[in-house]
């Protein structure tokens, strides 16, 4: 289908000139609908020095439907759920905002931009957002300690696999940690 061809094209583009600080791999060569992206924490941010796993899942009707993007490495960030799901709140991925001519490279760049500049006004983790705004020092400290704890060493891509910590799929948003 046209979808396969387009994904192949985007993959070729993203592997030959990957977005800044990212490497892209297919976990399974026969399935181009699942990408594993390793993102290096941008320099000059609290995430510097960490390596974050990002899982990109492309629906079968991509690009008509938005890709889903999650962090497989836990990260302390106002716009990423503080659990093993690692959901991201990104405007351009919402179904009503998604346009078929958006590219994955720009989506990935948007994810990176979120690390450079968190959006505490549009948070998934209200508590972390409050901390980011009101007690930046504490936020920086927590974020760095998360990097030390989770984002060093080999990048893991299986979500929720054996990770301990407060991450449950509980219904209370922002309650984690």
């Amino acid at each position: 289908m046209a979808s396969q061809k387009r994904i192949a094209k985007e993959l070729a583009e993203c592997t030959s000139s990957p977005p800044q600080g990212m490497t892209i791999k297919l976990p399974n060569d026969s399935d181009i609908h699942k990408w594993h992206v390793t993102l290096e924490g941008p320099e000059g941010t609290v995430y510097a020095g960490g390596k974050f796993g990002i899982i990109v899942s492309l629906p079968t009707d991509y690009p008509f439907k938005a890709p889903s993007i999650t962090f497989s490495t836990r990260i302390y960030h106002p716009n990423v759920t503080n659990d093993s799901l690692g959901n991201i709140c990104l405007g351009l991925l919402k179904p009503e905002n998604w346009k078929p001519s958006s590219r994955l490279s720009s989506v990935l760049e948007a994810v990176r931009a979120l690390l450079v500049e968190p959006q505490p006004d549009d948070p998934l983790e209200a508590r972390i957002a409050d901390e980011y705004r009101q007690d930046r020092k504490e936020f920086d400290k927590n974020a760095r300690s998360y990097v030390q704890r989770y984002a060093k060493g080999p990048v893991k891509f299986e979500s929720g696999g054996g990770e301990s910590g407060g991450g449950s799929t509980s219904n209370t948003g922002g309650g984690g940690n």
Partner: peptide, 22 residues
Amino acid sequence: YQHFNEMPNGRVTGCYMRLWEL
């Protein structure tokens, strides 16, 4: 998302911190 957060004036709605319920 303001609705699920603290308002600028410090007040909160009944849905404070409940963005991810259900």
